[in-house]
Amino acid sequence: MTAKILSLNVNGRDETILCDGLTTLQEVLRDQLGLLTSVKDGCTQGGCGSCSVLVDGELWLSCLAPVAALAGRAVMTLEGLKQSAGIAAIQQSFIDNSAAQCGFCTPGMILTVKALLDANPEPSHDEILEALSGNLCRCTGYLPIVEAVKDAAARLSGGADAARASEGREG
């Protein structure tokens, strides 16, 4: 296997990556680039969605993406999205709807929702289910996540009165 050097924009910074033909984007993000551990490793089979990232704004499974094919592209993880439009509303909606328990699937879920709402600010119920179909959650039973997506869409498109008040107290 020959080593290859390429450049990749990660969370807004140009990075130089050392990889071979089989190195996945997930490995680079989790191990080479200062532990971007919001990118989870739930299966390394493309089956759970917990490693989801955005590549040029599109949702990708980083565990299946050979990084060698991504030279020059822009990758975003949850760490890099802190200042991004809408992310705070999505996160607050997840909190207000108790849409996480163990939290392992949550970063991937949030990126999936971000990609959905960027492309389709007012998704229908079925479009939300379709968008979430690649992300597994073993704790919540999905209903709170679906509610959180609807809530986030309302917050982002409808302003203050569309955002539902939180039912619970902050712990």
Partner: peptide
Amino acid sequence: YDFLNYVIPGAAEMPEV
């Protein structure tokens, strides 16, 4: 050996609870 063959329900399989 994976989540493609070990089938767990997704968001679309959840009814109203």
